[in-house]
Simulated scan of single mutants.
Amino acid sequence: MPTATVTSKGQITIPAAVRRALGLRTGDRVEFVALPDGHVEIVPATRSVTSLKGFFGPQPPQVVSLEEMDRAIADAAGQAEA
């Protein structure tokens, strides 16, 4: 498994094998995603938003309208003031 060393500025060079596996090219951006188990995943930031579907688990069991969201926010704000 490729490794990298952190510099005094907190920088690393992504090993060539990892860049190839991720399809990264000069100038590409990457995201660091903290996983619940404490690991961190590095992913290309060039993915479309639709490719992230299911990334954070299953969809909520119900769909709510904007009005329901606004009402819930207003209710929570009212409770915070009390």
Rank of each mutant, 00 (worst) to 15 (best):
F32S: 03
S48K: 14
S48Y: 08
G27C: 02
F32M: 15
M69N: 01
L35R: 12
Q79C: 09
F32C: 10
F55C: 10
H39W: 04
M69R: 06
G38I: 14
P44I: 02
F32H: 04
L66A: 07
E41G: 09
L35V: 08
G23A: 05
K9M: 13
A16N: 10
M1S: 03
L22W: 00
M69G: 01
L22E: 07
G10D: 11
V40N: 08
G27K: 07
R71M: 07
V43E: 00
G27I: 03
V30Q: 00
T13C: 05
P36A: 13
I14G: 02
V63Q: 12
V64R: 15
M1Q: 00
G78N: 14
I14A: 01
D28E: 06
R25S: 12
S51F: 08
T26S: 10
T7C: 08
D37C: 12
D75G: 02
P15F: 08
P15Q: 06
I73R: 13
R47E: 03
S8D: 10
G54S: 02
V40R: 09
E41M: 15
Q62V: 12
Q62R: 14
R25Q: 13
Q11L: 04
I14F: 01
I42D: 02
E67L: 07
L35K: 12
T46R: 06
Q59H: 03
A21G: 11
A4E: 05
R29Y: 12
A72T: 07
A17D: 15
A21S: 15
S48N: 12
A34C: 11
E31V: 14
A74L: 11
R20Y: 06
L52V: 00
G57V: 06
L22S: 02
I73M: 14
Q79G: 10
K53R: 10
M1N: 04
Q59R: 10
G54Y: 01
V49Q: 08
S8A: 12
A76Y: 09
A17P: 05
F55L: 10
A16Y: 06
D28G: 04
E41A: 15
H39N: 13
P61H: 04
A72C: 07
A82I: 11
P61M: 02
I12W: 08
A34G: 12
A76I: 07
L66G: 12
E67N: 04
G10H: 08
V43G: 00
